[in-house]
Design a protein around this nucleic acid. Structure first.
Length: 424
RNA sequence: GGAGAGAUGGCAGAGUGGUCGAUUGCGACGGUCUUGAAAACCGUUGUCUGUAACAGGACCGGGGGUUCGAAUCCCUCUCUCUCCGCCA
């Protein structure tokens, strides 16, 4: 969430940013500021009463000690008056604090200056693209046909044991997926990311920390008996590792990578969007998370984009990188680059990674801070990205690398997969 | 799952109703001494809120209560440790 200090000192900038993000309820800013003003006024009044109570209590202690019971009794009477006043004010204060917080979390992050104006995905900017779109042989098929032709993934079996959107990977399909995960993790750790295996289930505090809760509650699977949530992405457990931490400047930057399954309810999706591997309720993903000092986060974002780009390039898939426009960006992001690979048989672009700088939006809510050289505490900047989401990569590998003889495996994967071809 | 013990500042660890936001040690930072370093000695060293700046206020795992006054007493939740049981 945005800091109240920013709203107070840079209101115009905030409003301008919210407009770019197509946030409609701009009056919320004034509402928050007036709550804040009231809140501070009440707090000052209440603190004054508390101060009087503290002083009087010390005085009573002294009076009791010197045997002046009558004087002590009359002061007790005085204190109880103060306490009544203070009780009223502190109830009001708690209410105002809650109002302010509830309103503040509704404001999205402000977009960076280079974020394009726009409302829809069509207005995203293509930054660059790479690898040629292949010309497929006559008789090429979409990936779901290839999955059953080579017995790689069985969608019906998943439907039987769980439901739609939970595919079963079999034989070479399972092996290819495992090869991709190992390759991605090795690629990330070689670049300096530390590998983590976090829990796949998190508590509500973690959900709040990264912003899935309260608004996107319906997107996560909830384990009611224990009040846990299945993670929708490794970003949630990895980023929350540093919730409520205060670290030294020298500990930054922190770079983490982790492979996890991801669980998403995807309520309301339908049609060609969910065909085959396009959109699933459970899928695998390797994530990278980066924490930096404030002044380093945009250089870190560029480095992450370049890192993911080289990874996609190495898979020999046609791709493009988009800079998302204000209206298409996520709630928490200040700047996002999406990676899409081209699904040649479906003739559409599929998103396989989204790399974002959240600046202090997540860390403010999480209270993740560091002490800078001058001994001042500052909010850490957080960034994350996928590297990469598995199913759509798998789909595009199958479709783009299919030949009449079978599916050829990109060079970088061959050591992990153990072969250069999937054939019947 | 059963029984017991515990949770205090970056870490260790005192503190069982008032002068405790908290003894002390370690660590860290600054200084003296030294050619330099170590040692020794002196000093500083939590977070949040609030203010123009002071002041003021809150915080001893979370929440609630008793009291004029709570780290200290009571209730409750969470977590950790020890023993027993079960188990990949």
């Amino acid at each position: 969430m945005l800091t109240i200090q920013m709203l107070r000192t840079e209101k115009d900038k905030v409003v301008e940013g919210l407009k770019k993000k197509n946030f409609s309820d701009l009056s919320l800013v004034d509402t928050i500021l007036s709550i804040d003003e009231e809140r501070r006024k009440i707090q000052a009044e209440n603190d004054d009463y508390l101060s009087k109570i503290n002083l009087a209590s010390k005085e009573i202690g002294k009076l009791m000690g010197s045997g002046q019971k009558d004087a002590a009794e009359s002061m007790k009477q005085e204190v109880s008056n103060y306490k009544e006043q203070s009780k009223l004010l502190s109830d009001k204060l708690a209410d105002l604090e809650k109002q302010q917080h509830d309103a503040l979390v509704q404001l999205p992050n402000l977009p960076n200056a280079i974020v394009p104006f726009g409302k829809t995905p069509e207005e995203n900017e293509v930054v660059r693209s790479g690898n040629e779109i292949p010309v497929l042989y006559n008789g090429a098929q979409p990936h779901w046909e290839l999955c059953s032709k080579y017995n790689l993934i069985n969608f019906e079996l998943g439907t039987k044991i769980t439901g739609a959107g939970f595919p079963v990977y079999i034989n070479k399909g399972a092996r290819l997926q495992r090869a991709l995960i190992s390759y991605f993790l090795d690629y990330n750790t070689k670049a300096g990311y530390t590998e983590y295996q976090p829990p796949y289930v998190v508590n509500a505090d973690s959900g709040y920390g990264t912003g899935q809760l309260p608004d996107k509650e319906g997107q996560m699977y909830h384990v009611g008996l224990d009040d846990f949530y299945l993670i929708p992405t490794a970003e949630v457990p990895l980023t929350n590792l540093y919730r409520d931490e205060l670290i030294k400047e020298e500990e930054l930057p922190i770079r983490m990578t982790g492979y996890t399954p991801c669980f998403r309810r995807e309520a309301g999706s339908y049609g060609k969007d969910v065909r085959g591997l396009n959109r699933l309720h459970q899928f695998d993903k390797v994530e990278i998370v980066h924490f930096t000092k404030a002044e380093d986060s945009y250089a870190a974002l560029d480095a992450m984009v370049e890192h993911v780009e080289k990874l996609v390039q190495s898979l020999e898939l046609p791709y493009r990188i988009l800079r998302l426009c204000g209206g298409d960006m996520s709630f928490a992001s200040a700047l996002t680059y999406d990676f899409e690979v081209y699904s040649t048989a479906q003739q559409r672009w599929l998103e396989v990674s989204s790399v974002s700088n959240f600046e202090t939006f997540q860390t403010n809510r999480m209270k993740f801070r560091y002490k800078n050289g001058e001994g001042k505490t500052q909010l850490v900047h957080s960034l994350n990205g996928s590297s990469l989401a598995l199913p759509r990569i798998l789909a595009c590998l199958l479709e783009n690398h299919q030949t009449a003889d079978g599916i050829s495996i990109p060079k970088v994967l061959q050591p992990y997969f153990g072969s250069d071809l999937i054939s019947e």
